[in-house]
Nucleic acid binder design. Structure first.
Lengths: 230, 230
DNA sequence: CCGTATTTGTCCGTATGTATG
DNA sequence: ACATACATACGGACAAATACG
């Protein structure tokens, strides 16, 4: 065990405790979600294997997982591509997301704890302040936290993973309307209604509020992408 | 030949992307869903590779996909196991399924076509006849078709894949209460309400009817499995 | 249209880690 | 507890398919 170093690992990758394919799966997912791998781009097995200093086997296994997750597309004998989701597919996915998130709102209304209500309301207030300050990045970050807090209030981890899976597929269509203050005001008004419905523990009202919130977001995406994409 | 694509992304979408790992993924999934591979069982790479007359590489890739789909569980340096979903996890998944299926009912009510309504009603009638005949297998088959028909009426393929993914995870808890006629009568009464709500194109009524149907199924599962599983 | 280079698909060997007597 | 047997983990080699000049 002294000088023998089977995998001394110059390690450009954060060697997690998990297996190599799992680490690669996570790392490649990050590259996709951050947009460093453009949609439609083909992923070269050799290139990624060399970049992560591993062989092609683990890379291929990571690919299979990401295909199943809907982030990559597989074409036999040609390779995998960063999934180029069409506007029609995005609309369909937004609809599913609306149903899931509306359900999350319903469950949150049924199960939210008193302390959480205060946190939810403070998120909305701080987001209003971000709008006044024209702090789009701050709004975006708080927006993610608010949604996470609502999901957490459902006490249903399977619901959370389902929702997250849908979100990831839509990465290409997200955060494009940060710089539209009028959208932000409308969006945060919806947040306020969602939170108050949860606070009132009114399940159906929360369901409807969350449903409309995502469906309106779908409409805003259509405005932005509707003309130039099919 | 008109214009060529610049970078040739997912070119001609191969309707059946058949590669060896994909075939194996499907075959192993069938084995799991049919119960030929008991839950909790460890899957030996060599055994499966020899059984399908391939090497271990494609088998491992198929494993990764099925892990991502939630059908297998992965333990580093030990292998993959047929996922042993706990009752608590099953309850959580049933809740998600309820939200998704309720949403399907809502969309179906909004988009169903006249011809489909007749088919939906005839399914319910034939299922009633199956109950009278004590034909559990026939009821089960029609039940699947009814659910498929409702999902199809949503015109949202992403919703269908999401729902199917949830169903597969619950395979272990399904079709256990076929031999309970009293459950069947209740279940089909719920079907009738679902179909009539869709026929009336009443979105919220359809939402509630479908929601209750799955939640009641969750309750019936709890009755059967509640005592002996945690 | 053909030949060449590149990439994917598959298989196998070796090392490491785990279970077991 | 130790040694042995066995399964997984990863890398690498060869074959097949595709892309390109």
């Amino acid at each position: 065990m002294s000088e023998l170093q089977p995998r001394a690992a110059p390690a450009p990758l954060p060697l997690a405790a998990r297996s190599l394919p799992m680490v690669l799966r996570t790392e490649i997912e990050k590259l996709i979600l951050r947009g460093e791998l453009p949609t439609g781009e083909r992923l070269n097995e050799n290139f990624l294997a060399e970049r992560f200093k591993v062989s092609r086997g683990p890379v291929r296994e990571a690919f299979r997982a990401l295909v199943e997750a809907g982030l990559l597309e597989f074409v036999p004998n040609r390779g995998v591509f960063v999934r180029q989701i069409s506007l029609a597919e995005a609309i369909a996915t937004y609809e599913v997301r609306a149903g899931v998130f509306a359900h999350a709102g319903r469950l949150a209304a049924a199960r939210v704890q008193d302390g959480e209500i205060h946190r939810l309301r403070s998120f909305v207030e701080h987001m209003d302040e971000c709008i006044s300050r024209k702090d789009g990045a701050g709004y975006y970050a708080l927006n993610l936290q608010l949604h996470d807090q609502i999901l957490f209030a459902t006490r249903n981890s399977r619901l959370i993973t389902t929702y997250m899976g849908l979100i990831k597929e839509l990465h290409r269509f997200r955060a494009k309307n940060i710089d539209r203050p009028e959208h932000l005001r409308v969006s945060n008004a919806e947040h306020a209604e969602m939170v108050e419905a949860i606070a009132a523990r009114d399940e159906l009202r929360a369901y409807e509020a969350h449903y409309r919130h995502v469906m309106n977001a779908k409409g805003r995406v259509l405005e932005v992408f509707g003309k130039r994409d099919a």
